[in-house]
Computed example of a mutant assay.
Amino acid sequence: MHRIVLAVLGIAILFCLLCGPAWYVALRLWRRGDLDAFRPLRAVWVTQAVLACVLLFGADSLTLANPAAWMVGIFLGVSLGGAGLFGGWRLLRRR
């Protein structure tokens, strides 16, 4: 039970880490002339948060060692992967 509480606390603390790269990609696209770059961020952030929660609780159910390391790894992977997919999708949509 204490790992679930730790996972929820990690989600609250690392939320800025989760949203930061996608926001940075949207800012770069907006500066390049894509004025609607910030509009889909709400859906991107919700999707990233849900995916991170699913992965965190899945890793918790596997009882992996060192929960802090896998929490940070999951958040970094979901954050950077989501920002990359968001940037690629926006660039393909512009053409």
Rank of each mutant, 00 (worst) to 15 (best):
I74D: 09
G10I: 05
A83R: 05
I13N: 08
L41F: 15
V46E: 07
R28K: 06
A65R: 02
G58C: 08
L18F: 04
A49H: 02
G10Y: 04
G73W: 06
Q48S: 05
R95V: 13
I13A: 15
L85F: 14
V8I: 15
C16G: 12
Q48N: 05
F75H: 10
R42T: 13
V25P: 02
F57M: 13
L64Y: 12
V78S: 08
N66K: 11
A7N: 10
W30E: 14
L6T: 06
D36W: 14
Q48V: 00
M1I: 04
R28W: 10
R3G: 09
A49S: 14
F86N: 01
R32W: 02
T63E: 12
A68Q: 06
L6K: 03
R94K: 07
G33F: 03
R31Q: 11
C19H: 06
H2R: 13
L64C: 04
L64F: 15
C53P: 00
A37T: 07
A59G: 07
C19T: 12
A83K: 05
F57G: 01
L92A: 03
D34P: 00
A68C: 09
A7F: 06
G82E: 07
L35K: 06
L64D: 02
W23I: 10
V46W: 12
L56G: 01
R3S: 12
L62M: 13
V46H: 05
A68S: 12
W70D: 02
L80F: 15
L35M: 08
M71E: 05
F75D: 08
L17D: 06
H2M: 11
V78H: 03
R95N: 11
M1A: 08
L6M: 12
L56S: 01
A7D: 11
F38R: 09
L55T: 03
G20Q: 09
G82A: 06
V50P: 03
A59D: 01
V8Q: 11
A83G: 09
A43W: 15
W30R: 12
Y24G: 03
F75S: 02
S61N: 08
L56Y: 03
W70Q: 03
F57C: 07
L76A: 14
H2A: 11
A37P: 04
F75P: 01
L62Y: 13
G10V: 05
A12Y: 09
L17F: 11
Y24D: 03
C53L: 15
R90E: 06
L35N: 03
L14D: 05
R95H: 12
L92G: 01
A7G: 08
M1S: 11
C19V: 13
V54D: 05
V8F: 13
